[in-house]
């Protein structure tokens, strides 16, 4: 074995450990509906967009303060409304800053999901290039209505990724009017979860918080598997 003397010189301390930052990550992507219809309360106490803003705040607060989640949670946020807007690419929470979401426009779900998959692919390449281990990526998509663009291609692609166990998808329908069949097209394993009151909103984000600090916690999945 020719080591060119490399290992003869190898004494402890001669090569430094990777610098700060966890080498284990749990990638979480949130695709959030901020369409005009989110302005109304629909079973919830407040308008749906307010419920969303309130819970996102609480979720970020949790991740920021949890010693483990703050290190390992790699968060990406995408909203859909007037357009598809990448609020944050994958990053640790201390580097993500944004104001409250406003509700207006349609629900370009197809484009939003396409963006989500593009960003995830890019992130996976980053993990590979930088020798970062990661847990199975989580993709949570929340919408309260029908999509205003085509989802045919992307839903097939996402379903395939779920079936190949490349990602875990959690489809969430907000309010009583959302189209369950649409969301189901993305999710061959888990049925979409209906959220129609403030308590359910709370519960969803509490369970997501638990997943962000303990990727082996499967209570979110269990909750989705309960009766619809």
């Amino acid at each position: 074995m020719n080591t060119n003397g490399f290992f003869d010189d190898l004494d402890f301390g001669d090569f430094s450990a990777p610098s700060s930052g966890s080498s284990r990550k749990v990638p979480i992507c949130l695709v959030l509906d901020c369409s005009g219809s989110m302005r109304y309360a629909d079973g919830t106490k407040r308008p749906k967009i307010d419920e969303l803003n309130y819970n996102i705040d609480a979720f970020l607060e949790y991740v920021r303060n949890d010693p483990k989640a703050s290190k390992i949670c790699d968060l990406c946020i995408i909203t859909m409304g007037d357009s598809v807007h990448v609020i944050s690419r994958y990053n640790t929470v201390d580097r993500i800053h944004f104001g409250h979401f406003a509700a207006s426009g349609g629900t370009p779900l197809g484009t939003a999901m396409k963006t989500a998959i593009e960003l995830l692919t890019e992130r996976r390449q980053y993990y590979r290039d930088n020798d970062i281990e990661h847990y199975k990526p989580i993709l949570m998509v929340m919408t309260d209505g029908d999509p205003t663009d085509s989802i045919a291609d992307i839903s097939e692609r996402v379903s395939e990724m779920v079936a190949n166990k490349e990602i875990k998808i959690f489809p969430v329908g907000i309010g009583v009017n959302f189209n369950q069949a649409t969301l189901a097209q993305f999710s061959p394993l888990l049925k979409p979860k209906l959220i129609r009151n403030s308590e359910a909103f709370d519960k969803l984000f509490k369970l997501l918080s638990a997943s962000s600090s303990n990727p082996n916690d499967d209570s979110l999945e269990k909750w989705f598997n309960n009766d619809f």
Binding site: F12, G13, A17, P18, S19, S20, G21, S22, S23, R24, P67, K68, K71, I72
Partner: peptide, 15 residues
């Protein structure tokens, strides 16, 4: 160890 792993065992030498 879980905490240390996420911190790349900072404060500890390889030995």
């Amino acid at each position: 160890l879980d905490e240390l792993r996420d911190d790349n065992f900072s404060g500890f030498r390889i030995l």
